[in-house]
Every structure is written in structure tokens, then in C-alpha cells.
Design a protein around this nucleic acid. Structure first.
Length: 289
DNA sequence: AAAGCGTGGTT
DNA sequence: TAACCAAGCTT
């Protein structure tokens, strides 16, 4: 299977900034690290412009570390999950203080950085430094569960995913990096969650799920909670006003004065402060200095 | 270990 | 239109 997927990838990979040879100098350890933070749960097409702007402003971890977390949260804009901006800033501090300003290539050192888990650590080690590790994201998990297990949707991430991918990995470093990227790409563009394009799939002939008639095998994934009216929506609205504020501090009574549920607004402010995404003092609220 | 965490595009 | 979906991580 790896051979067919890699051959398909060579012909069909999307033209993305970090894949362009002329941008290779921008996508070393730091460029890949920033891109992977942004890509955690945010679609590629929304990430690209923000990624280029971020790297233009902060071309190194040390340059980001020299600015305030508030600057990172503002620059993050509407990418969503703003604590990623906070965590990325924290990781930059850790890289400056523990690694001399150089993004580490060792998976365990990467895992020890704030905001980096099993996926991101291996993605940096493999795509930035060419090491040989299994890189498993939701796309790869979906391809594997369909092709091998014959089911329609993957289970939540687990240690087994890494083992399954490891057993498929080609022997060479460069080949294994290509295969990791190819599996993600196949899941992202062909073996999609909702309407897979099996006619365009390079491994349709050996796919257990397709050969079984694409049964709906049930979905063990968690359902996403309703957003409209949620605390998350309230947090998002509070943070949006803090980001937009021209003066850096906002009187607390001026934050969402007309929010339908004042208790929910207060809860949102408190939780943002608890998360370090906002600071309250003297009746004012602001992004973290 | 299950739940919480943004935002916007697609179906 | 409401639900689904998107290169996950932390507690």
C-alpha cells in the first residue's frame, strides 16, 4: 500500500506554501512548528494567510519570545482556539530558555514544550528535520481504519494508531516522511469524512471498507456541542472585543454590556482570566501583558 | 478519560 | 437550517 499512496501523492499533492522548494528556507523547525500549531483543528485554507503573516512578523522563536503574549493573541486574530496562541508564545519562551533559541528535533524534547502533543511533536521531527517516525493525524487514522479495518470512521486517537502507522512505514527516512505526508493528503482530499471519492483512490482495490460495500459501521467519535448560545461563544465574543480594543484595557462594564445572559458573560470573563487569556485589575480587562 | 476549547465554510 | 467538519491539546 505505501508504494501506491506515495505514487499518488507525487502526482496529486496540493500546492501548499510549506511544500514549495523556493520556500524551503521559511519552513525549517520554526516554520513547521508554527504551521502545525495553526493547523490544529483549523482548515488549511484559513491558516495559510495567517501563517505567512506570522512568520513575516516573528521569523524566529526568540523574536516571538521578546514580545508580549497579548501580541500573539492579537496576531492570532480569528483562527480560533486562542489558547493556541498563548501556548505557542509559551513554547517560544521555552525554546529560547531551554534550547538556545533553536526548535529541538528530538521528539521527547518537542513533547515537553507547551501545546505540543503526539501529532505535532512528530510532525516537526519528520517534516522539518527528516527523522523517521509515524505521524498520525485524523486523516491518517481515517485512511487506516477504512483500508485495513473496514470501518467508516476512526476511533479517538490512541497509542495503537502510532503502532499501526509504524508497521506501514518505509525503511528510509525520506521515504517515510513522504509516506506520512501522503497518507494525510489522501485522507484530506480523497478519503474524506463525509463523501469519500473512492473512484479517485489509489488503494480502492485493496480497501477493506470499500470491498465490504462501504458499510456505515457507527461512529465512536464525540459529537461536538452546540456552539450557538454556548459559553465558548461568549468567551469568543469577550476575546474579540479585547483584541479589537484600541486602548489596551477595557472597563469590565463595557465588555459585552448587552450580552443576553450576564451570568454567562461573567463566567466567560472568569474562565478567560483563569486560562491566562485575559487579565483583570482595577475594574479593567485586557489581554495578557 | 471525558469534556472543554473558536470560528467559519459546507451539506 | 441545524449539523457536520476541520493537520489536537490539556486537564
Amino acid at each position: 500500500m505505501p508504494g501506491a499512496v506515495m505514487a499518488w501523492y507525487r502526482e496529486n499533492a496540493r500546492d501548499l506554501p510549506w511544500r514549495r522548494p523556493e520556500f524551503a528556507d521559511r519552513y525549517g523547525g520554526w516554520g513547521v512548528l508554527v504551521s502545525e500549531f495553526m493547523l490544529q483543528q483549523t482548515p488549511v485554507t484559513r491558516v495559510i494567510p495567517h501563517l505567512e503573516a506570522w512568520l513575516a512578523r516573528w521569523p524566529t522563536p526568540t523574536s516571538l519570545a521578546a514580545d508580549a503574549p497579548a501580541d500573539a493573541v492579537r496576531q492570532w486574530a480569528n483562527l480560533g482556539y486562542p489558547r493556541r496562541a498563548l501556548w505557542l508564545h509559551r513554547a517560544a519562551l521555552e525554546i529560547r530558555d531551554r534550547h538556545g533559541g533553536v526548535v529541538p528535533r528530538d521528539v521527547d524534547a518537542l513533547l515537553a514544550l507547551t501545546g505540543i502533543g503526539d501529532y505535532t511533536a512528530r510532525a516537526v521531527a519528520v517534516f522539518a528535520y527528516g527523522e523517521r517516525h509515524p505521524v498520525v493525524d485524523t486523516n491518517t487514522r481515517r485512511v487506516i481504519v477504512r483500508a485495513i479495518d473496514g470501518r467508516s470512521q476512526p476511533d479517538p486517537p490512541s497509542r495503537r494508531d502510532l503502532d499501526a502507522m509504524e508497521s506501514l512505514l518505509p525503511a528510509g527516512d525520506a521515504e517515510s516522511a513522504l509516506f506520512n505526508a501522503a497518507m494525510m493528503e489522501l485522507g484530506a482530499t480523497v478519503c474524506t469524512a463525509r463523501s469519500p471519492l473512492c473512484d479517485a483512490c489509489p488503494i480502492a482495490h485493496i480497501c477493506a471498507w470499500r470491498l465490504a460495500g462501504r458499510p456505515d459501521t457507527g461512529d465512536t467519535r464525540r459529537k461536538q456541542a452546540r456552539y450557538e448560545g454556548s459559553d465558548r461563544q461568549a468567551r469568543g465574543a469577550v476575546l474579540k472585543t479585547l483584541r479589537a480594543a484600541t486602548s489596551r484595557s477595557v472597563p469590565i462594564e463595557a465588555v459585552l454590556p448587552d450580552w443576553p445572559d450576564p451570568l454567562q458573560r461573567d463566567r466567560a470573563i472568569d474562565s478567560l482570566v483563569a486560562d491566562g487569556l485575559a487579565e483583570a485589575s482595577g475594574g479593567f480587562l485586557r489581554l495578557p501583558a
